[in-house]
């Protein structure tokens, strides 16, 4: 099986995620873009596992998923506190710390 299309797809997903983090302004959406990057990594890991014929990559993908879930817990807690304090989840509004 040719694995190149899957790697290309994962690279496209990764790029969409990375660009999304840079251009979007809502903390939740930025966070979703980060998740997209992690999942692009998962897709690449699984594809390479298939190409190599071993399980390391698939196991790694599970670890990445667990870590992503833990990150959601911490991240949403932080974003929620900001939102409740400021009534806004825009990353442009939180600008007290600069220079």
């Amino acid at each position: 099986m040719d694995t190149t299309p899957f790697i290309v797809l994962s690279a496209i997903l990764f790029s969409i995620g990375a660009v999304g983090v840079l251009v979007r302004r809502n903390a939740i959406v930025i966070f979703m873009c980060v998740e997209l990057m992690l999942n692009a990594g998962n897709l690449a890991l699984i594809t390479f596992a298939r190409a190599n014929g071993d399980l390391d990559g698939q196991i790694a993908a599970f670890f990445v998923m667990v870590v992503a879930a833990a990150e959601v817990v911490v991240g949403l807690a932080i974003i929620m506190t900001i939102f409740r304090t400021r009534r806004s989840a825009s990353v442009d509004d939180a600008s007290l710390l600069k220079y």
Partner: peptide, 27 residues
């Protein structure tokens, strides 16, 4: 709180890069 959010978003962003790099090295 602002520091926590900035640290979190940028930290998560950088670990996204780390994971993809990890996948490429594994590949």
């Amino acid at each position: 709180q602002e520091a926590a959010m900035k640290y979190f978003l940028l930290g998560a962003f950088s670990s996204g890069f780390f994971v993809y790099g990890l996948a490429l090295v594994y590949g």
